[in-house]
Computed example of a mutant assay.
Amino acid sequence: MNIDVLARNNVNVFGSGSQTIVFAHGFGCDQEMWRLMVPGFVDHYRIVLFDYVGSGQSRIGDYDAAKYNSLHGYAQDVLDVMETLELRDAIFVGHSVSSMIGMLASIRDPKFFDRIVMLGPSPRYMNDPPAYYGGFDKQDIDELLTMMQLNFVGWASYLAPIVMQNADRKELTEELERSFCSRDPHIARQFAEVTFRSDCRASLPQATVPSLILQCADDSISPFEVGDYLHARLQNSWLERMTARGHYPHLSHPEETTRLIKSYLARA
Results as ranks from 00 to 15, higher is better:
Asp140Gly: 11
Ile107Asn: 00
Glu83Ala: 15
Asp199His: 13
Pro223Met: 13
Ser157Asp: 03
Gly40Glu: 10
Gln76Ser: 14
Asn9Ile: 14
Leu212Asn: 09
Leu204Gln: 06
Ala232Asp: 07
Tyr248Arg: 09
Ser70Thr: 15
Glu225Ile: 15
Ala160Asn: 08
Asp228Arg: 14
Ala244Ser: 12
Arg88Gln: 11
Phe196Ser: 07
Phe14Leu: 15
Leu119His: 01
Ile47Cys: 01
Phe112Trp: 02
Asp30His: 12
Val42Asp: 00
Thr84Val: 07
Pro129Trp: 01
Cys200Asp: 03
Gly40Phe: 10
Leu234His: 03
Asn69Ile: 12
Gly154Ala: 09
Phe136Tyr: 07
Ser122Met: 08
Leu251Arg: 01
Leu79Thr: 15
Leu36Gly: 06
Leu6Gln: 09
Asp114Gly: 12
His72Met: 07
Tyr229Gly: 13
Leu36Tyr: 07
Leu159His: 12
Pro210Tyr: 04
Gln57Cys: 05
Val209Phe: 01
Pro121Val: 08
Tyr229Arg: 09
Gly54Pro: 03
Gly73Tyr: 02
Asp168Ser: 10
Trp155Leu: 13
Leu159Trp: 07
Pro254Val: 05
Leu260Ser: 03
Arg35Asn: 14
Trp155Gly: 11
Met148Ile: 13
Arg124His: 07
Asn166Gly: 05
Val93Ile: 08
Ala167Pro: 05
Ala156Gln: 07
His95Glu: 05
Cys29Phe: 10
Asp140Leu: 11
Tyr132Gly: 04
Leu36Ser: 13
Gly40Arg: 14
Gln76Tyr: 02
Gln215Tyr: 05
Tyr158Gly: 09
Ala217Tyr: 03
Tyr63Ile: 15
Gly154Ile: 15
Pro254Leu: 01
Phe113Leu: 02
Phe152Met: 04
Pro39Arg: 10
Ser99Asp: 01
Pro110Glu: 00
Ser222Leu: 08
Gly134Val: 06
Gly227Met: 02
Glu86Thr: 11
Trp238Ala: 10
Leu176Val: 15
Arg233Ala: 13
Leu85Ser: 07
Ala188Trp: 06
Ile141Gly: 02
Ile116Arg: 00
Asp4Trp: 06
Arg241Phe: 07
Cys181Trp: 05
Tyr229Leu: 12
Ala75Arg: 02
Phe14His: 11
Asp80Pro: 04
Val22Asn: 01
Asn9Trp: 04
Trp155Gln: 09
Arg88Cys: 14
Leu159Tyr: 08
Asp89Leu: 06
Val93Thr: 03
Arg259Met: 09
Leu239Ser: 07
Ala232Asn: 13
Phe152Tyr: 11
Tyr248Asp: 04
Gly15His: 05
Arg189Tyr: 08
Ala266Pro: 06
Leu79Arg: 14
Asn9Asp: 05
Asp89Phe: 02
Gln165Thr: 11
Ile107Asp: 00
His44Arg: 12
Glu83Arg: 14
Asn69Arg: 04
Arg241Tyr: 11
His95Asn: 09
Asn127Gly: 04
Gly94Glu: 00
Ala207Tyr: 07
Val53Ser: 02
Phe136Ser: 05
Asp30Thr: 14
Trp34Ala: 02
